[in-house]
Computed example of a mutant assay.
Amino acid sequence: MERAIVISTHGGPEVLTVTELPDPVAGPGEILIRVGAFGLNHAEAYTRSGAWGQVAAVPGIECAGLVEADPSGELPVGKRVVAILGGMGRTRNGSYAELVTVPATNVAAVETRLPWADLAAVPEVYATAYSALNGNLALGAGETLLVRGAVVDALLDLVGNSVLRDSLAAVGPRGRVCQAGFLGGFAPVVDFDPIADLPSGVRLSFFGSAFVLGSRAFPLSAVPLDAICAQVEAGVLKAPPHPDLPLRRDRRGPPGDGGGPGPGKDGRHPRPTRSRPRRGRRSRFVGPVGTGAVPSPVRVNAGVAGKPGRR
């Protein structure tokens, strides 16, 4: 039996409950991962609240850990990997657990020796940013990415529909806007008229990582996650997590979770402080003491330093 966090009913963070579930088994085209650490993302506030309808009992859309089983034999047992999306937390049980099965197309092997909590801060946020900047926006040398208020060549919009008109107006002639988040909520743009609201020559695109990353059209292999992890390990990219807390039912909810949809994955601002797990401890939260005003990452460490926990 594995320990997992489940959504007991739709609501605030108090509905998250630690329980025991039968160990999952990898089927054809799947990989079983023993989770070393996993992240809390903005999207999970919506799945927990019921805004996205019926979803899997176990939330979580990303993790870092070790291969426990790969029926195809492609990845050896014990191989260090990260996993993103592939239906986790939506159509299949997600990563808030000690074990999780993930479609092989949504698993990437990495060579980094980053601690689990640090590694779990990388996959979803960097894969989304890389895909949007290099795919949708095709950002090139000499171009300017938005500093809001300036006229720029390309704009990555993580707020969503509530600022779409402003975003379209902020780019220069033949500029590009990629909407890749919904921190401002799901409400549609009222009376949006492409003829009036879309400037001539400006290109608008959308990148929904939760729906496409790992598909044939958007393969995870196109994202250099191993190289990104190496840059994090070298200190070129800054992605440290927050201090960790035990993996247990906390009536206040996960740190940084205000109890409803709010700032999260798409606008996360990692902070430099963290606490490494001590050998022999049970699964642990790795997260901020958040106020809800600053987008913050949260990570959960499910094992000990360098090795995911086993029962």
Rank of each mutant, 00 (worst) to 15 (best):
75 L>Y: 13
93 N>E: 05
168 L>T: 04
224 P>F: 07
128 T>S: 15
21 L>H: 01
203 R>M: 13
97 A>K: 05
184 G>Y: 04
229 C>I: 06
14 E>N: 03
109 A>Q: 10
210 A>K: 04
49 S>N: 10
264 G>K: 01
232 V>T: 02
167 S>P: 03
196 A>R: 15
148 R>E: 14
306 G>V: 02
48 R>L: 07
149 G>A: 04
5 I>V: 14
201 G>F: 07
143 E>V: 09
50 G>S: 13
252 R>W: 11
266 D>W: 00
285 F>P: 02
89 G>H: 10
303 G>M: 02
252 R>V: 13
25 V>M: 13
296 S>Y: 08
278 R>C: 03
186 F>L: 15
235 G>F: 06
245 L>V: 15
288 P>G: 03
290 G>A: 15
189 V>E: 07
297 P>A: 02
255 P>L: 13
152 V>I: 09
96 Y>C: 14
192 F>N: 07
17 T>P: 03
175 G>M: 06
261 P>G: 14
120 A>C: 12
290 G>S: 12
59 P>I: 07
273 T>C: 03
169 A>R: 04
170 A>G: 03
94 G>Y: 02
172 G>L: 04
75 L>R: 15
76 P>M: 08
83 A>L: 05
138 A>P: 09
124 E>K: 01
289 V>D: 15
58 V>S: 07
293 A>S: 11
231 Q>I: 01
194 P>H: 13
122 V>S: 09
90 R>P: 14
139 L>Q: 10
176 R>A: 13
180 A>V: 14
129 A>P: 10
183 L>F: 01
178 C>A: 14
271 R>L: 10
163 V>S: 11
43 A>S: 14
206 F>L: 15
235 G>A: 07
122 V>L: 06
221 S>T: 14
152 V>P: 00
267 G>K: 00
66 L>W: 11
146 L>F: 06
7 I>S: 03
203 R>C: 12
30 E>H: 01
295 P>V: 06
296 S>K: 03
49 S>R: 06
237 L>H: 06
187 A>D: 12
239 A>N: 02
9 T>A: 12
150 A>W: 08
285 F>Y: 11
76 P>R: 10
238 K>R: 09
229 C>E: 00
159 V>F: 07
285 F>A: 05
220 L>Y: 04
34 R>W: 12
